[in-house]
């Protein structure tokens, strides 16, 4: 593991050891597919919402600071 994605604040997160985890019963491909599509619909519905104003304001402030520094 090279740590390429270790961003700032990288640290311990729950169950970060390679403990032996039960794999559980194999989920059938059709169920995997159905769950996957439901998940993507849920995710896309949120991703399609406009960003809230406070984030747009923050982005604009950061951009402005960049230009003046």
């Amino acid at each position: 593991m090279s740590g390429a994605f270790r961003g700032p604040g990288a640290g311990s997160t729950p169950a970060e050891n390679d403990e032996e985890e039960e794999v559980g019963a194999e989920v059938s491909p059709l169920v995997v597919d159905a769950v996957g599509r439901a998940l993507q619909r849920h995710f896309q519905a949120i991703a399609e919402m406009p960003l809230p104003d406070r984030l747009l304001v923050l982005l604009a402030e950061l951009e402005a600071r960049e230009r003046t520094s």
Binding site: E21, E22, V23, G24, A25, E26, V27, V31
Partner: peptide
């Protein structure tokens, strides 16, 4: 992979 499998099974 095992976490993914368990997550999908439980969600289903």
């Amino acid at each position: 992979k095992s976490r993914l499998n368990r997550a999908r099974g439980r969600l289903a």
